[in-house]
């Protein structure tokens, strides 16, 4: 039967029909604002702990900060979620997982880069095993702090909600270049000499 190749189900081309219907609906103004309202209060982050800011992420969903008030419900599988919170450093190994999870998620999807490490490396800036998060997935909100307090994460979620209501689309996908993934001494020397 095969899945994505032709996408033909038994009652016409399901994919095109549904896409047309959805795009028609999305053009209607009131429908658009309703979708935005739904997205705003239904930001479910996927369970992907990239690094140590995960402890503060956990505290943020704990009782004192309780981000579920905002409809923010950490959830297990990537297929049902629409938000990645990159918690801190992304290493070479983790970068691939982040990219795969991002691609597994259904559109529209958003990304919050939490912590200094996710922004530009933080105190691990010159490590041989880290990748800046902005080179892996498109990022909507950068959140400073090392680690950011849970209140700061709440603020980032509210900022994201505001940008959704203002009808801003999610950040566009970035070009992931096929540069050497893991430079050794030779690559480093070349990069430095340039």
């Amino acid at each position: 039967m095969g899945g994505g190749a032709d996408g033909v189900a038994y009652f016409g081309n399901l994919e095109t029909v549904s896409k047309k219907a959805v795009s028609f609906l999305k053009k209607q103004g009131y429908v658009k604002s309703m979708i935005n309202w739904g997205d705003k209060f239904s930001l479910w982050p996927v369970h992907l702990m990239t690094s140590c800011c995960g402890t503060e992420f956990a505290a943020a969903s704990g009782p004192r900060f309780d981000l579920e008030r905002l409809g923010f419900l950490p959830f297990g599988g990537p297929r049902q979620t629409n938000l990645i919170v990159i918690e801190g450093t992304t290493t070479l190994k983790m970068a691939r997982s982040v990219r795969i999870v991002w691609e597994q998620m259904p559109a529209p999807k958003w990304v919050i880069a939490m912590g200094a490490c996710a922004m530009d490396g933080g105190i691990f800036y010159d490590s041989y095993n880290t990748v800046p998060a902005k080179d892996i997935v498109p990022i909507d909100i950068f959140l400073a702090g090392c680690p950011p307090r849970p209140e700061a994460l709440a603020r980032a979620v509210v900022m994201l909600q505001e940008s959704i209501v203002k009808n801003r689309p999610p950040a566009a996908d970035i070009q992931v270049t096929a540069a050497p993934a893991t430079p050794g001494p030779k690559d480093v020397v070349e990069a430095v000499s340039k």
Binding site: R96, N129, V176, A179, P185
Partner: peptide, 27 residues
């Protein structure tokens, strides 16, 4: 600890330099 395709040799030796380089991850 390191990825299987890590090309650098023996990072903790003193001749492995520690410099910031513009890295990308392969999709």
């Amino acid at each position: 600890l390191l990825p299987d395709d890590f090309t650098g040799k023996w990072p903790m030796r003193k001749d492995f330099p520690l410099k910031k380089t513009p890295w990308r991850v392969q999709k």
